[in-house]
């Protein structure tokens, strides 16, 4: 089972207590963008077999959104961080690189 430590209440929360929010760090493309950019923003999502950054909602706990880095293949969790971060913080990247030296952040 997938278990995250909620970065807001510091409580371990399992998958059934959380609501998935899909891919993290998606930048909005609104008015002024091209059709293809808007299409990409709306529909194109990464679906890697490996390291993925995701949004999760602690719906049965504090009710707040947060970010998580995990491996979709092994369910290994590399860490969770606040929803306000616009990109994965340094310590999360370092943690992933330590465990998966061949991984490249796209």
């Amino acid at each position: 089972m997938l278990r995250f430590i909620c970065p807001i209440c510091n409580l371990p929360a399992d998958e059934t207590e959380l609501t998935p929010g899909g891919e993290a760090h998606i930048q909005r493309k609104g008015p002024g963008s091209s059709d293809s950019e808007f299409y990409e923003y709306l529909f194109e999502r990464k679906n890697p077999l490996g390291i993925h950054f995701e949004r999760w909602l602690h719906s049965y706990g504090c009710g707040k959104w947060f970010h998580a880095a995990r491996c979709t293949k092994t369910m290994e969790v590399f860490g969770t961080y606040k929803a306000q971060e616009v990109k994965p913080p340094r310590h999360i990247i370092d943690n992933i690189k330590k465990k998966r030296p061949n991984w490249k952040n796209e």
């Binding site: 409580l11 059934t16 009710g63």
Partner: peptide, 19 residues
């Protein structure tokens, strides 16, 4: 409930939201 209810973790004064 999925929470940790061991005596050392959930004590008097603890308050948990869960299901």
């Amino acid at each position: 409930s999925p929470v940790d209810l061991r005596k050392k973790s959930f004590t008097k004064g603890s308050f948990l939201r869960t299901r």
